[in-house]
Simulated scan of single mutants.
Amino acid sequence: MQRRSGLLVAICLWISMNGSLALLEHEGESINKCIKKYGGLTPEIGERLERFKEWSEGYEEIPCFTQCYLTEMFNFYNNQTGFDKVGVVRAFGSPVYEACRSKLEPKWGSSPSSCQHAYEGFHCITNMESHPFTLIDGMSSLSPAAKDAMKDCLQEVHQDEWSSFAAFALNPVNEPIPCFTRCFVDKLRIFDERTRRWQLEVMKQELGVPAKGARIWGCHRQSGRDRCATYYKQFTCYALAV
């Protein structure tokens, strides 16, 4: 199952290619089916599909479109029983399901699922799938204390910078969120300021790195333009060592 926070990207890309490109098999056909009762892909419907990117909290731009689309395309949603927990977890991960549980589970006695339920549930999934807190919760190598430290450090920077969090996974030369690494390392007491040495056993316990037997000689000698950059370079060296 492909992860589907790209639903609206797929729709808009499909529109821009005049229906000639569907990112998943039968996607164009499914979109056509779901908008057929509204007159098909007219310029007005195209504009309304574009506005889906805004994910309004209060209303669905094209009523029942999300329920129809999910039913046509994926096996984690059924318009009678609603969202399937196993299917959602398989497609998006347990942290996303847990974050959206209140939106995904139907209200007591409200079966079958409704158009509003489908829209609100998938709205939550697309918002939470790339949320940094969700990404952190999905990191199995981190201890609970490490996850809390990272979340606390994100609270200390402007939320505009949160979108850069996923870039850490690419191990870029420059730290995506300046001083973030130093922040959580200090909170976890992984670096000894007095000796200028990393507490490797604590690092392994809290963050799961470096790997056992990894060649880490020289990591502590790396330096950057300032203390935050130095923390990031050295920590990245330990994390990537094999």
Rank of each mutant, 00 (worst) to 15 (best):
A99N: 08
H123C: 02
H131Q: 02
P144V: 07
H158T: 15
F184N: 00
E120D: 15
G82R: 02
M139R: 02
C183D: 14
H123E: 08
K151L: 10
Y119C: 01
Y119K: 02
M73S: 11
F180C: 12
D160C: 08
C179F: 11
F76E: 01
E161F: 09
P112A: 10
P176K: 05
S110F: 06
A149E: 02
P132C: 09
S110I: 04
E61C: 08
H158L: 10
D160H: 06
F74S: 04
C68R: 00
S163M: 12
A166N: 08
G87H: 13
Q80K: 15
T126Q: 12
E105G: 04
E175N: 08
G93A: 08
P112S: 05
G93H: 08
N75L: 07
S164A: 12
C179E: 11
E120L: 09
V157Y: 06
V86L: 06
C100W: 00
Q116K: 09
T66P: 01
G82P: 02
W162N: 05
T181K: 08
R182V: 05
Q80I: 11
S140G: 00
P172M: 12
V185I: 15
S140K: 11
S56G: 13
A167C: 03
A91S: 09
N174E: 15
G121K: 01
Y69M: 10
R182A: 12
N171T: 08
M139I: 14
E60P: 04
A167F: 10
I62C: 07
A91M: 10
C68D: 03
E57V: 03
Q155R: 14
G87L: 14
G87I: 09
Q80E: 13
K107T: 11
S56Y: 12
P172D: 07
R90D: 10
N78M: 13
G121C: 04
N127S: 06
F168R: 04
L154M: 14
D137C: 03
E129N: 02
Q159R: 08
K147Y: 07
S110W: 07
T71W: 00
F83Q: 00
S110D: 05
E156A: 15
H158I: 14
P95R: 03
F65R: 00
T71M: 02
S110E: 13
S130M: 14
G109V: 07
